[in-house]
Amino acid sequence: MSAKINQWKNFSKGLIKENPALVLMLGMCPTLAVTSSAFNGLGMGLATTFVLVLSNMLISAIKTQVPDKVRIPCFIVVIAAFVTVVDLLIKGFLPALGESLGVFIPLIVVNCIVLGRAEAFASKNGVFSSLLDGLGMGLGFTLALTVLGIIREALGAGAFFGNKFIDGDGIIVFILAPGAFIVLGFLVALVRNLSKKN
């Protein structure tokens, strides 16, 4: 029974309590750059989740074979390989999403969340735990990006997942870079204060 609870914890800690984007402040670049619309945020989050789950599993599986001194370069190559897979898949099947995420798909390689989980969790735990950890962290990241995207799209374009609910433009600055910083700042403050009260 306790084993099951532990596995659940491996999964659930990434969602809110250790949310990578809002609490640990990791992976800030894609968080700010691609969340100009809810759909982009969701797409980026899921692409990162895919890389995170697969790289976590593979790194956990090869952890005993990799010499300690060169483990970081090895991890980076594993991650870069999965990022290339995602890049090609998105370009092939979702060209519109690929167009709007642009250079940020290959930049998943340097997303600190992915290498961070490889180093902090997958290199010390079993394959199944690492899968859950990657999935939880990835979904937490996706959640943060989607919420941020929804807020920015609503304020900046007056739309929800591309469906306009006002006529004309919104407050355009919110879909530009300054809006990203400001909305994220308030979102981090909100999450921090809510989790303190619990």
Partner: peptide, 21 residues
């Protein structure tokens, strides 16, 4: 109190970004 640390830094960066626009 609630804005201390990273939230205020992010908002400051946002205002700076606005200036750079």
């Amino acid at each position: 109190k609630g804005m201390k640390g990273s939230p205020i830094t992010l908002v400051t960066a946002g205002i700076l970004a606005l200036a750079f626009m």
